[in-house]
Amino acid sequence: MKSLTLEFCVGTACHMKGTPDIIAAVEALPPEIRSNILLRLTHCLGNCGAGPNVKFDGILHSRVTVDSLSNLLKRYFQQE
């Protein structure tokens, strides 16, 4: 399975808009998927008005929700 780098913004603006929940959702993934994800934290991704922001495989996604992230993950890991 290919690996994936996720960079979460834990800056205050993103934190107030829901970063804790999306990080918790990633931590709760089944181990066979979770082990392929490298989780990085950063204090700002420069798009504070549209949080929570996540860099998914190098691409910035804004207004991320637990659902939208799980869709991205599904698509990414099915592409093999």
């Binding site: 800056g11 205050t12 934190h15 204090h43």
Partner: peptide
């Protein structure tokens, strides 16, 4: 904490920085 967090956002203070 929630009210303080909103004040930080409004004043562009990023605790994580």
């Amino acid at each position: 904490f929630e009210e303080l967090g909103c004040i930080f956002v409004a004043t562009n203070i990023n605790v994580a920085a």
